[in-house]
Design a protein around this nucleic acid. Sequence first.
DNA 1: AAAAATATGTCAGTACTATTGACTTATTTT
DNA 2: AAAATAAGTCAATAGTACTGACATATTTTT
Lengths: 180, 180
Amino acid sequence: MRTMTDTEKTAAAINQSVELSEEQLRQAIELLFFAYRDFTGEADAILDEYEFGRAHHRVVYFIGRNPEVTVTQLLAILKITKQSLARVLGQLIDEGFVEQRTDAADRRRRLLALTPKGMELDKQLTKRQSLRIAGAYLAAGPQAISGFRQILRGLINAEDRERVDGFFTDIGSDISPKGT
Amino acid sequence: MRTMTDTEKTAAAINQSVELSEEQLRQAIELLFFAYRDFTGEADAILDEYEFGRAHHRVVYFIGRNPEVTVTQLLAILKITKQSLARVLGQLIDEGFVEQRTDAADRRRRLLALTPKGMELDKQLTKRQSLRIAGAYLAAGPQAISGFRQILRGLINAEDRERVDGFFTDIGSDISPKGT
DNA sequence: AAAAATATGTCAGTACTATTGACTTATTTT
DNA sequence: AAAATAAGTCAATAGTACTGACATATTTTT
């Protein structure tokens, strides 16, 4: 009686653990719900100080991440309407967190960027969330990080996946021990 | 002067060898944002048919998951106020998706459960989201699933982690669907 | 040059979710 | 009997987002 090869063992293991029970899928739903709730709740205290809401946070975040983004591009990223963005963006501009300049190449366009004040806010908001993520990353290790990324990427609509692919496509390797 | 324990040495080693760049952490923030947005968007079309919103979805989901849950427990899970829940829960009860009965052991309590109609809605809503998750799970494989879970669990506030431990650990007695 | 399309901005009205605060009723615990 | 707990309700407010309609400036197409 022959023994299984390593490959066969792996295949069997995959088959067994890939049996996706309703229980397992519901667990994933709940993980997402609680993780997202706690993750977004992180910045709320800071936002309150500025009398801003989560919509302001998202706008600040994505302008910070994509300097010189246009209004239309921002709408595409956030998937909200122009009217919804207007309120939030207007406040951020009025209060000096975001600045607009006309694109010289196409004068219909307004290029959006954070002011130093806006960068400061972005940094403050992102720091908290980053700490939470860093904690989870460090506790779980590089393999887990790779899996986390792969699955979340798979949950994103195909059209938007490229947005999160960042500058490196070799998922997993970028977290490995430095210098070795 | 005391020496480091093995655990401390390990922690120190991890801290030194793993470099979490701002870029990596921002990528995680974006993964969460897009994945959660697309994941929750999945059920919207169905909810529209019933003229319900996402709040109704969450309530149906958690009652389905925890039959005989009380109002207070549901508030603790959802972390919203009683007044917020009242509107949504009232509608669900009025329209026959959720039923209430008085707890015989403590007649102040109302035990909540889905009616067959409510179960049908829950199933319909969960199916879509489960398919999305199953797709990502199957594409990424068991190791990735494990990592995904570990990291998301690490993002959840410590108090609530037990809620998502599911079949692995004994869940907090406050929510379990009674028995012992 | 005129027409069409694009990018942005704005006004008005509506819906959903969620909040704080105050108060009531019923029931159980102290 | 008093205090605490569980649930329900009323009123007012805020934040986010939507649809629809329309205006202006600029660029592209015809």
